[in-house]
Amino acid sequence: MTRSALHDRAAPSLAPAYRFPQPEDSPGMTNPLNEVRFTRRDMLVAGGASAAGAAAGGLVPAPVQAMTGGAPRPEQVSTAAVSFEVNGKPVTLELDTRTTLLDALREHLKLTGTKKGCDHGQCGACTAIVDGRRINTCLTFAVMHEGAKITTIEGLGQPGALHPMQAAFVRHDGYQCGYCTPGQICSAVAVLEEIGQGIPSHVSADLNARMQVTDAELRERMSGNICRCGAYSNIIEAITEVAGEGA
């Protein structure tokens, strides 16, 4: 006997049959369905067939249409003008108000040196310097920076006129695939500015003393910039060299 046949034989004993009202319950009453028996398996099969039929017949979207009042309305896009200075040049853009600063730089201004990595503010590849502070440009809207002064990797230096940090990264091989390098360099430049201004980090031992450029300080401050190739030691060497030159 097959497994299916065994299951069909066992089903009636596992699930009690539904009992229709009997004549003795109401004198004079008769019901032609008294001999019909429904098991739990029968009900599940019937329910599945009903659901499949409703979906095939296009009945499922009806409640959705009723709740939304018919066909979906076209999306209303809100735009706004924003003006800021990018790498020393004034720029005015008309943007969807949901446009991130990262997308404004990459898609509208074609400054593709700033990279889109995780798009969640977790890798640092999109780091740029805004009003002297490094930020993750994927986490902020462009319209929030009216009048700001923005510096991207293109604004730090160009081939033939490299920024000292860019040149140090080349000398110390502070990159491998290079995808994170623009964010690493922008962050490194801002880190040295932070230390010079006496802004402490979580590992600063004495908040009243002059901030020192140490391996621990640099590793802590650069921890938001991820290098998946693992060139961290070379990056620290490059930053340390630039810090020594500026001392």
Rank of each mutant, 00 (worst) to 15 (best):
T127K: 03
L218H: 08
Q212N: 02
A188G: 08
H202M: 13
F84T: 04
A148D: 03
T137V: 03
P74Y: 01
G157K: 01
T214H: 06
A11H: 09
H163V: 02
M165D: 00
Y232G: 06
E146Y: 04
V77F: 09
G28Y: 03
D215W: 00
Q22H: 11
T39C: 09
R134L: 06
G224Q: 01
H172R: 01
A5F: 11
C227I: 10
G57D: 14
A10I: 11
F20C: 08
G155E: 08
Y18W: 15
A15T: 15
H163R: 05
A167N: 09
V64Y: 11
L95T: 04
V64H: 14
A10W: 13
R40D: 14
D206Y: 08
C126G: 02
H172F: 02
C186M: 08
C138T: 13
Y175C: 06
F38Y: 10
D25V: 14
R3V: 06
G230R: 02
V170C: 12
Q176I: 07
P61W: 04
E94M: 12
A66T: 11
G224Y: 00
A46Q: 14
G147R: 10
G88Q: 09
E154V: 04
P200W: 06
I239K: 00
Y179A: 02
I236T: 06
L156M: 05
T39P: 07
S83I: 04
F84I: 06
Y232C: 07
R9W: 14
M67A: 14
A62E: 10
G147F: 10
G155Y: 06
A15R: 15
I129D: 09
E237L: 07
H108V: 04
G70F: 12
G58Y: 07
T140A: 10
G57N: 15
R171F: 01
S201C: 13
L59N: 04
